[in-house]
Every structure is written in structure tokens, then in C-alpha cells.
């Protein structure tokens, strides 16, 4: 043992390391579930207040200077895009009776409103924590939207009273998508290190222009089609000769989200059947 590092230096290190190992083992075998649930339940109200405070204080940075006017226009455009999307959908539903039935069935699927109580929004991780969990009927893989139909991510981990949602801006997130004006042009939207969204695998022979609206496609059964994702900000040639890539401006600023809705899609069991 080095002269300057007496035994009282090592003892706490050994004790704390052993305790930490024990905690991880207990967590892995599930014996800490109750304690973790209690800890989450105890901290969630304060975390929720902190999230709202942080979002409120952060807003001036987001909307500073000339960006204020731009934000107003963006907000108006977003609202119009949502309205336009809904109108277009209604029109399509009238024309296509079968699709109308499908659409209404999807829209009549239940959802759960949840408050954001924590965030982990680093470049390498884009995760939010919501205050509803398996007791409310939430399961892994369910899509999460903000109130007016904008897709923000999926549930990746569920506790009894909380769930973690991986945002679409996370590098590991992907969702099948299509253009609102041409649903036959499909591809995959994935996150770009918490900064933007990338719409990849778009066939090179299709015309894509800045401003095109991108929505979820029907290819993922857990995600209803027609949920807004973002608008095209620029288009680049893809990595191969067959595809091109569009970079999207998200429809929502993720750091200011405080309230979301989890869609209980058809793949999900009826919440009433879940053991309370």
C-alpha cells in the first residue's frame, strides 16, 4: 500500500464499491423495483415542476432576437400544416370508404395523456421520462405524440408509474415515413444526434423539395399513419445511386415539450384488461 494512501482511504472505496455492486445485482434480479418505484414517485412531482421551470426559462433563449418573428410564422405555419393535414385526411377518407373506416378506427384508439417529469437530452441520448407507466396501460414500443398529432417518439422502457420515451431525434430512433403530398414516396426517418431528423432511402427518381411535409406511413403497425414528423429543409444525394436523403426540420422543439399523449395502438391490449 502506498505510503500516502492509508487504509482509511481504501476502506470507504471498497465498501461503497461493494454496495454499488450489490445494488446493481438487486436491480437486475428485480428486487429493487419497489424501492425504485417509490423513489420515482417521490421525485416525479418535483421533477415535473423543474421541467416546467426549465422549459419556461429556456424559452427566451429559443425565441431570442429576430427568431421571435420567425417563431410566430413557424408556429402559424405549423398550425396551418396540422389543419391542412387534417383536412386532406378527411377528404381522402370521403373518397376512400375503406380507408376512412381504417382511419377512424385508428383515431378512435384510446390514448393516455402524460406529463414529462425528466429529460436526458444529450447529443448521444434523447430520452424523456413521463409520469405514466404500465399501470395506465403503457407498453414498450407505443408511439408518443404531442397534443395536436405530432409524432415525437416511442416508449422504450416501462415502470409501474413511469416510462422512458426515446425521441425521434435520438440517433437510434427510426420510423417509416412518407410525404404528405405523395404517400407513395416512402422512406425511413431517423434521428441525427439530437439536432435534426434525416429522411433516408427516398427513391432517387422522386422529386423532393424544401418545405415538403413528412408524415408517418402505414408500414409500422404500431404507429398510425398521418402523424406529422417535420418539413424538408434540404435534400442531398444518398450514399448510393438509388436513394436520396432529405433533412427535416422537426415540427416541435423537443426541449420545451412538457405534455405528451401515448397512443394505445391496435398492437396494445385493452387497458381495462390490465391488472390494476
Amino acid at each position: 500500500m502506498p505510503r500516502n494512501l492509508p487504509h482509511w482511504y481504501f476502506r470507504p472505496v471498497v465498501i461503497v464499491t461493494a454496495l454499488l455492486l450489490a445494488m446493481i445485482v438487486l436491480h437486475m434480479v428485480g428486487l429493487l423495483t419497489t424501492v425504485e418505484g417509490l423513489a420515482m414517485r417521490a421525485t416525479q412531482p418535483f421533477a415535473s415542476v423543474a421541467v416546467r421551470a426549465g422549459s419556461f426559462i429556456g424559452l427566451p433563449w429559443v425565441r431570442r432576437g429576430d427568431a421571435i418573428e420567425n417563431d410566430k410564422i413557424t408556429e402559424l405555419y405549423r398550425q396551418l400544416a396540422v389543419e391542412n393535414q387534417q383536412l386532406k385526411m378527411q377528404m381522402r377518407e370521403l373518397q376512400l370508404a375503406q380507408k376512412q373506416t381504417d382511419f377512424l378506427q385508428r383515431r378512435s384508439q384510446p390514448f393516455i395523456t402524460a406529463r414529462v417529469v425528466g429529460k436526458d437530452l444529450r447529443r448521444e441520448a434523447q430520452v424523456i421520462i413521463i409520469d405514466q407507466g404500465s399501470r395506465a396501460g403503457i407498453q414498450e414500443g407505443l408511439p408518443v405524440i404531442v397534443a395536436d398529432g405530432i409524432f415525437v417518439g416511442r416508449v422504450i422502457e416501462v415502470g409501474a408509474e413511469h416510462a422512458k420515451v426515446m425521441l425521434l431525434t435520438d440517433s437510434r430512433s427510426t420510423v417509416p415515413a412518407a410525404f404528405d403530398r405523395s404517400p407513395e414516396i416512402g422512406g425511413v426517418v431517423s434521428g441525427e444526434f439530437g439536432v435534426s431528423l434525416m429522411f433516408d432511402l427516398i427513391s432517387k427518381d422522386k422529386v423532393v423539395v424544401a418545405g415538403d411535409i413528412v408524415v408517418t406511413s402505414e408500414l409500422d403497425p404500431a404507429v398510425p399513419r398521418g402523424l406529422l414528423i417535420g418539413t424538408v429543409s434540404r435534400v442531398e444525394p444518398g450514399r448510393t445511386n438509388f436513394f436520396q436523403t432529405a433533412y427535416l426540420q422537426p415540427m416541435v422543439q423537443y426541449q420545451t415539450v412538457t405534455l405528451v399523449a401515448v397512443l394505445l395502438t391496435s398492437a396494445t391490449p385493452d387497458p381495462a384488461s390490465i391488472d390494476q
Binding site: 417521490a42 421525485t43 418535483f46 421533477a47 415535473s48 415542476v49 423543474a50 421541467v51 416546467r52 421551470a53 426549465g54 422549459s55 426559462i57 429556456g58 433563449w61 429559443v62 417529469v117 425528466g118 429529460k119 436526458d120 437530452l121 444529450r122 421520462i129 426541449q255 420545451t256
Partner: peptide
């Protein structure tokens, strides 16, 4: 401990970049 963790995961994470770093 709880207060500081709540500040980290709730308040600081909700601030815009680079403050959320």
C-alpha cells in the same frame, strides 16, 4: 441528493443548448 438530481434531470435538461450540457 434528491434536490440536486431533480435539478439536473428536470431543470437543467430542459434548458436550451448549450445550457443543457
Amino acid at each position: 441528493v434528491i434536490g440536486l438530481v431533480v435539478i439536473q434531470v428536470g431543470f437543467i435538461s430542459s434548458l436550451p443548448f448549450p445550457l443543457n450540457s
